[in-house]
Design a binder for these strands. Structure first.
Lengths: 378, 378
DNA sequence: CGGCATTATGCAAGAGTCCTGCATCATGCA
DNA sequence: TGCATGATGCAGGACTCTTGCATAATGCCG
């Protein structure tokens, strides 16, 4: 714990004003006053400072609902910068562009040849992100941070360990890309990012202890405990797939469904259609899958006792039928069955979590009380 | 995030000075200056304030090693208050008295009749704590907080759920006792407190992600993640005992050892003696126990991936033989075998963790930036 | 259309906190 | 005894926050 200077006090107060404005709607001085407990002259000075640095602008006066002189309103200049979120999996890449308020400005998805090797994949990622930024006229100095979700574990130092893209094991993807794009790039396990996203804007907004279970070809889990991502030593938290007693790794075998009538229809879509028409065989398949998933989830629930388990991944479309079955099976295995919800974000969740991680990295710049408040034009 | 006025700044700085002194040795003004980044006049004002409020006193000047005028030295008045830690189990009660620096001043242990019911047990706890405080001349206004470890889960609201003392289920022990003793009383699961204690002063001082496994008649686990206690919804984190796939609840059956020669010697003491004399049968028993413990610990390790697993509870005396066997068995079950250590605190660990929890509760009073800095004489 | 209540804004005065810098004091060493 | 070294005492100055009053702009009502 450090002592604070008068200058630090002012910086602290200025950031407090900025945070209040970032939270949402444009605010008048009166509202800022009650939000920050600061006096009006102090607020005016802080706002002037923030305005010259490009963080804040005066908004149009709101509709004059109240009597009296209309108040000026100030807003956070979300357009002052951009962050990007990338989800690079085995089969696809998803790119998301957002402003500093986290508002999504553009999204793009493209299939990848699963056979593409690690080096080509890195080049591909670089090239597509570069093109994506160019397409949306993002200048280098506008880009504040990038988050990247990868299919593998990422340790605290940023090094990857992946069985899906084995050549990336040992790679410090963040450092490599940050050299290319001239801003912080944070690599993170994709399931962890899905958990972050569900907590931010998905099914887990109301709780701070969430386990996000990826159920599909892969079985993995992201943990958000106390509102913060829990990685564990070397990023291995939630990797229950490898314990044979629980049979999580092979659970997907129970999800076979070859009854697709229509050409080109995916297995899960066909299964969902069968479920919708109350096909008893389809329900039996889903129940068997739930039964094989249950011990692994039970171990997770007993270990960390989350408020909520979010089911995401390939089975998401069948989620509404899966959750009650899962609840039934869990009742036999755990003391307390947690709430179970289906991902509301689906596939774009990972790249949205990557955006959130990038925004967190921007926040650390602002939270640092020493040094001057940065400007938006760097 | 709130704005701060000049008064809050001063309070912030004063607390920073106090924290610097709390950390350890008495400090001179120069050392405080480098520790807090504050100027000398500011430090002097803060120290005067802290002195009149009773938090700080001038210490004897250290041995004049350096040239120049000898500097005054200031120290935290740890004797300005007391906190107590209690561990009430099925078979025993342990009481610990400490000063505000966490220095232990007294400890007491007493057996309890395991058949004692919930109501009598609460009275017993009250009476023994009262007597313990009287014996050591702790006046009511000197006692700042009490921590209590109980054999059961404690939810966020402070309510207990226990199978060991079933009558306590639903009890808000903290509120009840705080009315009796006139200070905050925090109830917490005993294994959680063991984890806190090992992190504070035991085997887990160097790491912030720790699982503390209670191995003995009971099987339970306390989790400290990111340096903070992780309770989970309703305090159920780490309760892997109930999952039959892992067989943790019945593991203790493998630990039978009836070969005690000496009268009155406990089972574990006899086993340790046999291990010391390289009795192959004793080693086989321990190996079988490790094998039955391993799947549960593996599930925990895969779920949260801690840096360190601390083994505590009844088997602690045999820990040095248990840990290598456990490591061997875990190697087959997990990707990464974490470090495994034996509790260095043993049985008093829980009450020491209770002391730490009580001290944390004192800290929250100091950390609150609004309102005046409290005095030690309330 | 004009007065009134209501709310926002401009400006100055006042109080509080922190830092810098110089002179002074106390000790160890030559 | 003189000197270097580091601690202490005491202003002066700079900065920040708050309070309070006068003024400006709007909606409402007569």
């Amino acid at each position: 714990m450090q002592g604070h200077d008068l200058g630090a006090l002012r910086r602290l107060n200025t950031v407090a004003v900025l945070q209040a404005l970032r939270a949402g709607e444009p605010l008048t001085l009166s509202r800022l006053k009650s939000a920050t407990n600061l006096s009006r002259p102090t607020l005016e000075l802080a706002l002037e400072d923030l305005t010259t640095r490009g963080w804040v602008a005066e908004a149009a006066t709101g509709e004059g609902r109240s009597p009296g002189r209309p108040a000026r309103r100030f807003r956070f200049r979300a357009e002052a910068g951009r962050v990007a979120g990338v989800d690079i999996g085995l089969h696809k890449i998803v790119l998301t562009l957002a402003d500093l308020a986290g508002e999504v400005r553009a999204t793009e998805r493209e299939d990848i040849d699963p056979a593409m090797d690690g080096a080509d994949r890195l080049d591909f990622l670089r090239q597509r992100l570069r093109r994506f930024l160019d397409d949306h006229a993002v200048r280098a100095e506008e880009l504040w941070a990038v988050g990247v979700g990868v299919p593998g574990l990422v340790d605290e130092a940023g090094r990857i360990r992946s069985v899906i893209v084995p050549e990336w094991t040992g790679l410090d993807l963040g450092r490599r890309l940050s050299e290319t794009f001239g801003c912080p790039v944070i690599a993170e396990n994709d399931v962890n990012l899905a958990a972050v996203a569900e907590h931010w804007r998905g099914a887990a907004r109301l709780t701070d202890d969430v386990a996000c279970v990826l159920a599909g070809r892969r079985a993995a889990c992201g943990l958000l405990l106390g509102g913060r991502l829990h990685r564990g030593r070397r990023g291995g938290a939630g990797e229950l797939g490898s314990l044979p007693h629980l049979g999580l790794a092979s659970a997907h075998e129970a999800l076979q469904w070859q009854h697709g009538d229509k050409e080109g229809e995916s297995e899960i879509t066909a299964l969902v259609r069968a479920l919708e028409s109350d096909d008893p065989e389809a329900h039996a398949v889903l129940d068997a899958y739930a039964a094989r998933l249950a011990p692994g989830i039970a171990a997770l629930v007993l270990a960390v006792d989350p408020d909520l388990v979010v089911i995401s991944g390939g089975v998401t479309p069948a989620g509404q039928w899966l959750t009650p079955r899962l609840t039934t099976h869990l009742r036999d295995l755990t003391l307390h069955v947690p709430q179970i919800a289906v991902s509301t974000l689906g596939e774009p969740g990972v790249s949205l979590g990557a955006v959130r991680t990038a925004l967190d990295s921007v926040d650390t710049i602002l939270d640092n009380p020493t040094g001057p408040l940065p400007s938006t034009t760097r």
